[in-house]
Design a protein around this nucleic acid. Structure first.
Length: 281
DNA sequence: AGCACA
């Protein structure tokens, strides 16, 4: 164990809840941290894993600002002191030893007002990037959950910016966020049906007339799709769909959950992670 | 709620 103040990131290291705000209390209403210096391939899950064990942590969000591949994050705590403690223990920490990227953390200019929706994950992704033509079917539609106010903090983008050139402001506060809720967590809250994430999906509630071709046509629109197997068990077909990566399977599950195929005589598909990965062909 | 193939 090292003992400098810029030690490499240790997910289990925990600082005692401490420290008053630096330099005064004009900021003491803020309980949200602004995080930059992230590699552009950072995942929301990684952000969550950094902050989740900090005392007083509430939720976080990863944001693709839309300029280049710039990614920033916001972490919200239940109170200012907890936010400050987390700031001090994580600021300057090496996030990725490979790339040498270092976390830069400061108090956000304003608190995130996003409240954790019950049943939703503890983190959220906001993607303002322009979609590339290759896969134009992300989690695009807001299916029922409209959340009109949720980005008071993107003004921070310019303050802690090191990487590409140009000014990182101006696209600031002027659009409805396309916020997709990511639900995944390994270890405590197992996702979807209590089954741990798997790159094979189990698909049920298909309706007796569903054909392999029909389902395959839908699934093959998604990146990473490999193999589909349907088997009728006692009349009701169920399917197993295999993907290259767990993340790709997850995307499909999120996108297709409860959607209804033309052949269906009942409700939408019910999709879970399969209990075991499909055997290799 | 219903999870196979090796």
């Amino acid at each position: 164990m090292s003992h400098g103040h810029h030690q490499p990131y240790d997910p289990y290291y925990q600082l005692p809840p401490a420290a008053a705000a630096p330099g005064g209390e004009w900021n003491s209403g803020i309980n949200t941290l602004f995080v930059s210096g992230l590699p552009d391939d950072v995942k929301a899950r990684e952000i969550h894993n950094i902050f989740r064990r900090r005392p007083g942590f509430d939720s976080c969000q990863l944001k693709y600002t839309g300029r280049g591949n710039q990614v920033v994050a916001f972490a919200t705590f239940f109170n200012h002191q907890s936010a400050i403690a987390a700031l001090h223990s994580l600021n300057g920490v090496k996030f990725d030893p490979q790339s040498g990227s270092t976390l830069h953390i400061e108090l956000a200019r304003s608190n995130s007002r996003r409240k954790r929706k019950p049943g939703s994950g503890a983190y959220v992704v906001i993607d303002k990037r322009t979609k590339k033509p290759s896969d134009a079917h992300e989690t695009s539609s807001d299916d029922g959950e409209s959340d009109p106010e949720e980005d008071p903090e993107m003004n921070n983008v310019d303050t802690a910016y090191q990487g590409d050139s140009e000014n990182a402001k101006s696209e600031a506060a002027s659009d409805p966020d396309n916020a997709a809720v990511a639900v995944s967590e390994i270890g405590e809250r197992t996702a979807e049906g209590g089954v741990r994430p798997c790159s094979t999906l189990f698909i049920a509630n298909l309706g007796p007339n569903c054909t392999e071709d029909e389902l395959k046509q839908v699934l093959s629109q998604y990146p990473g799709f490999h193999v589909l197997k349907i088997r009728a068990k006692g009349g009701m077909p169920v399917a197993f769909a295999d993907f290259e990566e767990i993340e790709q399977a997850t995307k499909v599950m999120e996108n297709l959950q409860d959607t209804t195929l033309p052949s269906s005589d009942r409700g939408g598909m019910h999709i879970e992670y399969a209990r075991s990965k499909m055997r290799k062909p």
